[in-house]
Amino acid sequence: MIEIVSRERCIACDRCVEVCPRNVFDRGADGVPVIARQDDCQTCFMCEAYCPADALFVAPLAFPARPGSPLRDEARLAAAGLLGGYRREIGWGRGRTPGAKFAVGPELPATPPPIVTTVTERTEIGEGIGDTISDEVTR
């Protein structure tokens, strides 16, 4: 779900207010949009794709991150290059080439191909960023 509207980066263009298919944002009194209806967010990342200032961050979870989650830590996310990450991947923004031009996916096999990786350590969702995400904290 949408977690961050960076006050530092936002240029107050209201593009996210306009394009969010779920009408999650309201215009802010000072120009910076506010996340008014987070519960309605469908985690589709479209607002990020349209934000010209890389000011938004959508955590890849179907519900709000817990308070203090690394997914709400703007400085950490910025340092990790995750703000504006989707926009970069799809090649949107001045001086970029649309990713659609290179979007040639793999041929999908009719039956599963052989295993080529042998390292299969197990991880839980959230573990990789030092977070704990489970039904207990989310529902």
Binding site: V58, A59, G85, F102, V104, G105, I125
Partner: peptide, 16 residues
């Protein structure tokens, strides 16, 4: 990754 960049958003952001 080239075909479906959004598929990797989840993994990249969760460190998987």
């Amino acid at each position: 990754r080239r075909g479906q960049p959004n598929f990797f958003l989840t993994f990249d952001r969760l460190g998987i």
